[in-house]
């Protein structure tokens, strides 16, 4: 069957009309990425910037370092520990937001329909506030003379303030706080679609509460869990402000490390290569997510 010509020309028109937007999008989205990728394979400039000479040094320095005296190659332990800390903190953030987010999403989804919008609004309020301000607010809570330590000391539970600020714990608290909404919203969407009769069905069929959670609820809301985890994991991995403010200068994550290369470190090719690595990790996560969720849609 041939399509009516009107419809086809409409399709062509559609493409034509969106051409300027597409060109802009391609340039704006991929242009900077291409520049980053190009910089990563060039030679480092004397102070900053790059020299237009092809070089693998940027990529080499992601994982390795050369001894200044005898040029022996060894793994760059400092880099590895930063990568490891970033991944560890991001996974921990994802887990914390999941364990806090699931009960929250469940709570909202089981409220009367009229009050759900209110609870969702409360969850999204932090989004409307500047990230830096939110991070400094957390700092105010956890610093040595902050709200938490003052309260604990006044109540006599501790005599010395607990050093939380400028530790990995502080970074974790900050990231969990900042990214919690990104976990709650997709979880809420999944729980909201969940048929609560299935819990009764499971309970009727001799399942314990734990078995209902593991065998009925979690598998059914899995797409929401995956979506939330990716939405939290990706920005956590590239976090810059939170580790900078709450972790101090020493507890760097990849984001801070990249910034360092473009600033004080004066090694743009390495910074560009690190950025590309980060981007690739994000892309792989997204591909995995799409695969898993589309398979889910096929069989249930």
């Amino acid at each position: 069957m041939s399509k009516p010509s009107g419809q086809r020309s409409k399709g062509v028109n559609g493409w034509l009309l969106s051409t300027p937007a597409l060109v802009l999008l391609l340039l704006a989205a991929s242009g900077p990425l291409l520049i980053v990728a190009a910089y990563s394979v060039m030679e480092k400039g004397d102070y900053s910037g790059v020299r237009w000479v092809l070089s693998g040094e940027g990529w080499f320095r992601v994982l390795f370092e050369r001894d200044i005296f005898d040029q022996t190659v060894s793994l760059a332990d400092a880099n590895l520990s930063i990568f490891w800390r970033s991944v560890k903190l991001s996974i921990a953030t994802t887990l914390i937001t999941f364990f806090l987010g699931l009960p929250t999403a469940w709570f909202i989804a089981t409220r009367p329909a009229s009050s759900r919008a209110f609870w969702l609004f409360l969850i999204t309020i932090p989004f409307w506030t500047n990230l830096l301000i939110r991070t400094f607010a957390i700092m105010e809570v956890i610093r040595n003379q902050g709200i938490l330590n003052t309260a604990l000391m006044k109540s006599g539970l501790i005599s010395e303030p607990i050093q939380i600020l400028y530790t990995d714990t502080a970074v974790l608290i900050g990231m969990a706080y900042v990214y919690l909404p990104l976990m709650v919203l997709p979880l809420y969407a999944a729980v909201d679609r969940f048929d609560f009769k299935l819990i009764e069905a499971g309970y009727d069929l001799y399942a314990s509460r734990w078995q209902i959670l593991r065998r009925v609820i979690l598998p059914i809301i899995k797409p929401g869990i995956i979506a939330g985890s990716i939405l939290v994991f990706i920005p956590s991995l590239g976090a810059y402000v939170t580790p900078r403010v709450l972790g101090g200068g020493k507890n760097m994550m990849i984001g801070n490390f990249i910034e360092l290369q473009f600033g004080q470190g004066q090694n743009w090719p390495l910074g560009a290569a690190l950025s590309t690595v980060l981007l690739l990790v994000v892309l792989v996560s997204l591909v995995v997510y799409t695969r898993v969720s589309s398979r889910d849609n096929q069989d249930g």
Binding site: K197, E200, A201, G202, D204, Y206, A207, V216, I220
Partner: peptide, 28 residues
């Protein structure tokens, strides 16, 4: 309910969407 030898056929069926027919039937 999970300690009563009584089972229910729900009006809305309430079948587990993530399990096959055989897995649904074998759940209990």
């Amino acid at each position: 309910p999970n300690a009563r030898p009584v089972n229910t056929v729900f009006q809305s069926y309430a079948l587990f969407p993530h399990l096959t027919v055989a897995q649904n039937v074998g759940f209990g």
